[in-house]
Write a protein that binds this DNA or RNA. Structure first.
Lengths: 339, 339
DNA sequence: TTGTAAGCGTTATCAC
DNA sequence: GTGATAACGCTTACAA
C-alpha cells in the first residue's frame, strides 16, 4: 500500500525520459502522428510500467479545447433535473455528445451565488460550449453566453434571445390550439385550463393556444393558475376549477402530471372521464399511459430536441456556420381515452 | 456589432500592458496580495475598459486546483438524475459546495463509452474531487477513483469499497427490520415484499431487514421482484403478489413509489388499505403524502446525506484527515394511514 | 521520423 | 510593493 498524500503525477516528461525519447514523440503517440514502431513500443512499455494519466486540463490550455460541453438547466431550487422532460433531453444530448467524444457536464443553478459561479465556470475555459434548458426571460446566464461568444444552443425560446443564440423547441401555441380544438369537437361547452409555471415561455404559449382555440368562447375565469408541474398542483387546480365552474365539461392541463392530478380531483368529485368531463394533457409522458383513463395529450419529440441541441453546439465547435434562428420541431396529438 | 469568429481573449498580460504594470501585480489584485492603491486603480480601470475574463483552466493548471467537484450518478440509462432521491442529494451537496465556492459538475454515466470518458475526465485535472451515488458492486469508476487517489465520497456502500473511500448512508437493514416489525404488530399474518432494483446494495439490504423481521414466518415465495423503482412496477408487483397469495394482508414496498403503485393494484382488486392489507413504503418521498391513504414509511435524512458527502470531500481537499469508514445516518419510521 | 523550443494563461518565488 | 522569471503539463511548428 503506497504512502498517503498526493502521489507525484507522472507526466509526458517522465514517460519520455523512461523511454529514452523526447516529449514531442510521446505526445505524437498519444495523439497519432508519425512515429517509428520501436519508439512507439518503448513509449507504450514505459506507460504501462510507470503508469501515466494525461492531464487533459493542460491539454485544454494548449489546444483551447476541453472537449466538454455544459448542460445548464435553469429553474429555481425546484427539481429542474428531476423534471422527466429535462432528464430525457439531457440523455439524448449526452448520447450525441458522447459519440463525438465530448464530456457533457451538468451544472445546477439554484442560487444567485450559483449563477455567478457558473458564469465564471463557463467563461473559464472548462467547456467549449453550452446547452441551456428552460431559461426564463432575462436570465443573466444568456447574457454571459452572448458576451462570451460561447457556442451555445437554447432549448425553448426565451423572448429576449434576439437571434444571438440558436434555439430548438416546439410550437407550443399551435400544439395547444390543436389539441384544444380537438377537445372542442367532442362537444364540450365549458372548457377550462389548468396553467402552471407561468414564468416559462412554454406555458404562456400553451395558454395562448388555448385562448385562440376557444375564440369568443374563451373565459378568463376558467383559467386556473398553479405554481408547479406536479401531481398535487393538478389536484388542487382541478378542485378550484370545479368550484369556479361546477358545469365545466372539459379541461386542458398544461402537462400530463397536472392532468393526472386533475383526474384524481374529478374522481373525488364523482365526475366521470371522459363522460362528464373531457381531459387533455401535454408531453405524452409516462403519466399519460399510467393514468386511468389514459390521457389524450401532445407528444413532444423530446429526444430529438436534445439531439438537435447537441448537434447545434457540435456544429459550431467544428466551425461550421449555424443559422442563429430557431428549429421548431413538430408535435403530434395523441388521442386516447380521457377525452 | 463585433465581427464574427472567436474574439481574441484578453489575458493578464494585456491588462498588465494596459495598466503599465507587470503581470505579477495584476495577478495580485485578482487574488489579494499587497498592492498599492494606484496600481490597483490602474488595473481595475484597465479591466473595465478592455474587459477581462480570467482563464480558470490555466489557473487550475498552475495551482493544481480546479475548484470543481464531480457528482457522478451511476445507473444504467434509466433516469438516475430523475430519481428524486438523487436529485435531493445533489441539491444538498451543491449547497455545501457552493458555499465553499466550488463548482459541482454532474456527470451522467449511460454507456461503457461514458464510463471510459468520465474516467479520463476525473483523472484529467478538471475536478478536485468526486461524489459517487448509487454505485453497484464492481463499478469500474470506483477503481479509477482509488487508483487516482482522488478525494472522494460514496453515497451508499457498495460492498467492495474495502475502506479505500469514505462513504455515507443509512442502515437499510435496520430500518427495514424496524418498519416491518411495526407492521407485524398490527396483527398481519401473511406479509409480502415488493423488492426492486436488486443490483443496488440498498435494496438487497432492505430485503435482508425484511427477512430478519419476519423470522421463521419468512416465506421466500412472498418476495416479488421488479426491475425499477417506478409506479408501474408497483402496480405489477402487487398484482403478482395477490395472485401468488390472495390472502396477503401486509406488504413492504422497497420504496414509496412502488407502494403507491401497490395501492392502485389493491384498489383495483377491491382490497381496503389498511383494513384488508397494511402497506408500508420507504423514503418518505412526496408519494407518501400524496397517496390515498398516506403511507407509513421510513424517512431517510436525504439532505444530510448530501451535505455529509460534500463535507467529506471538502475536508479532504483541505488536507484534513478523514476516517475512511462509513457514516451511517439515522432513519425514522413515519407512521401514517396505510398500515 | 524525431528532437528542440516556444508557447497556452496563470500563479509563485524570488530578488530588488 | 513590484517586476522578472520560472514553472504547471501539454502540443506543435520548425529544424534536423
Amino acid at each position: 500500500m503506497p504512502p498517503p498524500g498526493p502521489r507525484k503525477r507522472t507526466t509526458v516528461h517522465d514517460i519520455a525520459a523512461a523511454a529514452g525519447v523526447s516529449r514531442g514523440t510521446v505526445s505524437r503517440v498519444l495523439n497519432g502522428g508519425y512515429v517509428s514502431v520501436e519508439a512507439r513500443a518503448a513509449i507504450e512499455a514505459a506507460i504501462t510500467t510507470i503508469g501515466f494519466v494525461p492531464n487533459t486540463a493542460a491539454r485544454a490550455l494548449k489546444t483551447r479545447r476541453s472537449q466538454a460541453v455544459a448542460f445548464v438547466a435553469l429553474g429555481q431550487h425546484t427539481g429542474s433535473f428531476a423534471d422527466p422532460n429535462i432528464g430525457a433531453v439531457m440523455r439524448a444530448a449526452n448520447a450525441v455528445l458522447s459519440l463525438a467524444d465530448h464530456q457533457m457536464v451538468n451544472l445546477v443553478l439554484d442560487s444567485a451565488r450559483d449563477t455567478e459561479r457558473v458564469g465564471r465556470y463557463l467563461s473559464g475555459g472548462f467547456v467549449d460550449g453550452v446547452i441551456v434548458v428552460s431559461a426564463r426571460a432575462g436570465d443573466p446566464i444568456i447574457g454571459v453566453i452572448r458576451d462570451l461568444r460561447l457556442p451555445a444552443a437554447v432549448v425553448g425560446h426565451p423572448p429576449d434571445l434576439d437571434g444571438a443564440v440558436p434555439f430548438v423547441g416546439i410550437d407550443n401555441v399551435g400544439a395547444a390550439h390543436e389539441i384544444v380544438s380537438r377537445l372542442l369537437t367532442t362537444g364540450r361547452r365549458r372548457v377550462g385550463m389548468i396553467a402552471a409555471a407561468q414564468d416559462r415561455d412554454s406555458c404562456t404559449d400553451r395558454l395562448t393556444g388555448f385562448r385562440s382555440a376557444l375564440g369568443p368562447a374563451f373565459d378568463e375565469r376558467l383559467v386556473v393558475r398553479v405554481p408547479e408541474h406536479d401531481y398535487r398542483s393538478g389536484v388542487l387546480g382541478m378542485r378550484l376549477l370545479l368550484e369556479l365552474e361546477p358545469a365545466a365539461d372539459g379541461v386542458f392541463a398544461a402537462s400530463d402530471v397536472i392532468a393526472a392530478g386533475a383526474l384524481e380531483a374529478l374522481r373525488e368529485a364523482g365526475r366521470s372521464v371522459p363522460g362528464d368531463v373531457g381531459v387533455v394533457g401535454f408531453d405524452d409522458s409516462a403519466w399519460a399511459v399510467w393514468s386511468q383513463p389514459r390521457l389524450s395529450t401532445v407528444r413532444q419529440p423530446i429526444d430529438e430536441i436534445g439531439t438537435v441541441a447537441a448537434r447545434l453546439v457540435l456544429r459550431q465547435l467544428r466551425g461550421e456556420p449555424v443559422d442563429p434562428g430557431g428549429r421548431i420541431l413538430p408535435t403530434t396529438t395523441v388521442w386516447r381515452d380521457s377525452a
